[in-house]
């Protein structure tokens, strides 16, 4: 299981300010924390970065790799910024990962970069129009992305399929559809395709104290389905791995000798599987 540390994202105020000021200290501190917590790769999300994206990505990659011996996941829609990041990436710590291509023709050039720089790439299973309706649609888009990757000369072993996790608070039925999609992706090739998710989006819009609960248990259910990688909070994921044996027991209906924890797990499983309608206070019911 590869955990790609999600914390270096332009969405976070502290990170955004550090990016603007080119202040290395907070970036490196967050990168190190994630590495220590078990991240195997660090995501550098610079947003669309239309102005100065190249310089920013270059700075992010070098700043991160100065202190952390890990590869970087280059996260932006700006093609040139990705290329700038790839040029300075230190492959001694592993191959970089492009985040991402999709079935939208505007994102095809990312595959060209992946081929040229011999790196890995995420294929987000969305097309040009709207979100996929179900697991089957995700699989159909995945097949197109796989064909496109081969066309561009990207080996399928270097492609991570991403089924696109949606918010459980507004799209509850998709939680299960994404689990199904992971299973389907794995069967689309031999050796099985690699899979990745942007995990924390599942709990986007949920109350703050609920977010780690949903993130962790959703992650464990995706693991059972065969997930290979997650862009996530490495600390939360480490906790999830510790809880895994108990969680598996609860999934199989066994008693874990901790009624409170068991209840939280059971209720969250029911929400993820759509057996109970989601509400922000579902744990209190």
């Amino acid at each position: 299981m590869l955990i790609i540390g999600e914390k270096l994202s332009i969405i976070a105020k502290r990170v955004r300010e550090a990016m603007l000021k080119r202040d290395k200290a907070p970036i490196q501190e967050i990168a190190k924390e994630q590495w220590m917590a078990g991240a195997g790769m660090i995501d550098a999300n610079i947003g669309p970065a239309e102005d100065g994206g190249e310089a920013l990505m270059e700075w992010m990659v070098t700043t991160i790799q100065e202190v952390v011996p890990l590869p970087v996941c280059l996260d932006t829609t700006n093609y040139k910024a990705i290329e700038a990041g790839l040029k300075v990436h230190n492959n001694q710590w592993g191959r970089p990962l492009i985040n991402s291509t999709s079935n939208d023709p505007e994102r095809f050039p990312m595959l060209e970069l992946a081929a040229r720089y011999n790196c890995q790439i995420i294929g987000l299973t969305v097309g040009k129009g709207g979100l996929p309706a179900d697991a089957e649609e995700r699989a159909a888009i995945a097949a197109e992305i796989m064909a496109r990757a081969m066309e561009y000369g990207v080996p399928l072993e270097d492609l991570y399929l991403d089924p696109l996790v949606l918010q459980i608070a507004t799209s509850q039925d998709h939680a299960q559809k994404v689990i199904e999609a992971i299973k389907m992706f794995k069967e689309m090739n031999d050796p099985p395709m690699k899979t990745v998710v942007g995990l924390s989006n599942i709990s986007n819009g949920c109350p703050k104290q609920l977010r780690p609960v949903i993130n962790k248990y959703y992650f464990l259910m995706l693991l059972d389905a065969g997930l290979d990688a997650a862009i996530a909070d490495p600390k939360e994921m480490a906790e999830a791995m510790e809880e895994r044996p108990l969680f598996e027991k609860v999934l199989f209906g066994d008693n874990i000798g901790d009624p409170k924890k068991e209840m939280v797990m059971k209720k969250t499983i029911d929400i993820i599987l759509g057996k109970t309608l989601y509400a922000h206070s579902y744990l209190e019911m």
């Binding site: 608070a169 507004t170 309608l277 509400a279 922000h280 206070s281 209190e284």
Partner: peptide, 15 residues
């Protein structure tokens, strides 16, 4: 017009 918020409001009221 949001089923999850509808449920949430009913929960808050019953709480």
């Amino acid at each position: 017009l949001d089923i999850n918020l509808s449920k949430q409001l009913n929960i808050l009221i019953t709480q």
